[in-house]
Simulated scan of single mutants.
Amino acid sequence: MNMPGFRKVLAGLLSGIGLAAAITAYADEPLKVGFVYTGPIGDHGWTYQHEQGRKALEQALGEKVQTTYVENVADGADSERVIRNMAKSGYDLIFGTSFGYMNPMANVAKQFPKTAFEHATGYKRSTNLGTYLSTSYEGRYVAGYLAAKMTKSKTVGYVASFPIPEVIRDINAIQVALNKYNPGAVVKVVWLNTWFDPGKESDATNTLIDQGADVIFQHTASPAPIQAAERRGVYSVGYASNMASFGPKSVITSIEYNWAPFYIRTTESVLNGTWKSADYWGGLADDALTMPISDIVPAEFKAEAQQIIASIKSGTFHPFDGPVADQSGKVRIAPGATASNADLAGMDYYVQGIAAEFPKQ
């Protein structure tokens, strides 16, 4: 039995036998909040930033919450086991931070209808399962503009994790910016099929640089691509956290997540009984995404990047305003139209200009 259900049963058992004080004390116990992480909290990237959000939650709500985390949890059966054990242990709210946790979380949510579940980057929802993600494609577009201005070789490299819509749309956002600000510049991609493997990330970066890339992006968790770019004397863009310290001469900007407001707000809603399953997309407009721009970038380019950020925040511009065509020339987003969240959530094509074959699913 999960904790909310147990509280109701306990209240009934204790009523009328002089234990009202015990009921009140039990009701005042902290809300139990669990976090399931795909990587190590010391990855300096994706999981590290989620861990900063958990710490901020503890600091903000104090004794109202009791949090814990499990790191390095693989997708599939391992994640389902960990998530189920949390629910069985009475956790009231559980956050899962890998796309690959989607089906496991959906399975467990059915079995524990009184527990609130939140899944990062997925699309399956139910009464007690919500979804959340950051609109990182906004940051990719801005960084794509900077790459367009900084590249000399007209070749941008992307160290990619898995061919899921989140990663695909981020690659596309860069190419859309290149098409506008440096026509003929291309994105080359190396797929690793892992979120965190510093050795593979470094090797992929070197491969891309050997192929002519002089700006490196990544959709992996460690700072290894940044460090490799720094050693090779090319520019790079940090991901998930501000990675400038790993490449002070290389990093032109970082696409930095800020999960704290969402974690605090969501937990408060469970505490006050107002939580409902929803699909949250947080980005530049609500500071769920920030972009520190290095002084490596010339002042005129930095100013233009800030103007692009302002236009995204105000809603006057969207990175996927049409027309947008795929590699075959087929128009996927019509002139005058803007991609909806549903369009973005199911993005399964490369846009024109990407110098790579679309990965087989």
Rank of each mutant, 00 (worst) to 15 (best):
P4D: 07
G5T: 15
K8M: 10
V9P: 03
V9K: 02
A11H: 13
L13V: 12
L14S: 00
I17S: 13
A22T: 15
T24H: 04
A25D: 14
A27H: 08
E29S: 14
F35Q: 01
V36D: 01
V36R: 01
Y37F: 15
P40K: 12
G42C: 07
Y48Q: 00
Q49P: 01
Q49I: 09
Q49L: 12
H50E: 00
Q52S: 00
G53W: 07
R54T: 11
A56N: 05
E58C: 08
Q59N: 07
Q59V: 02
L61K: 03
Q66P: 00
D75H: 04
S79A: 11
N85T: 07
N85A: 05
A87M: 13
K88E: 09
L93R: 05
I94R: 00
F95P: 02
F95N: 01
P104F: 09
A106C: 10
N107R: 14
V108R: 11
A109W: 08
F112M: 04
P113W: 12
K114L: 11
E118D: 12
E118T: 04
E118N: 11
E118S: 05
H119R: 10
H119E: 07
G122E: 12
S134A: 14
S136A: 13
E138Q: 04
G139S: 13
Y141P: 02
Y145V: 08
M150Q: 11
T151I: 05
T151N: 06
K154T: 09
A160P: 01
P163G: 04
E166M: 02
I168H: 00
R169I: 13
W191G: 01
T194D: 11
W195M: 03
P198I: 05
K200D: 15
K200P: 03
T205V: 06
T207V: 07
L208C: 00
I209F: 08
D210L: 06
D210Q: 08
D214H: 08
V215E: 10
I216A: 13
P225V: 11
Q227R: 13
A228N: 00
E230K: 03
V234G: 01
S236H: 09
S236L: 10
S241K: 06
A244G: 07
A244S: 10
S254D: 15
E256D: 14
N258H: 04
W259G: 07
Y263F: 07
R265Q: 13
T267A: 03
S269H: 00
V270L: 04
T274Y: 01
T274G: 01
A278D: 12
G282E: 03
P292S: 01
V297Y: 08
P298Y: 13
F301Q: 15
E304P: 02
Q307V: 14
I309A: 11
A310D: 03
K313S: 14
K313C: 08
S314K: 12
T316S: 11
P323W: 03
V324F: 07
A325H: 14
G329W: 01
L344M: 12
A345F: 09
G346K: 13
D348N: 14
Y349W: 00
A355T: 04
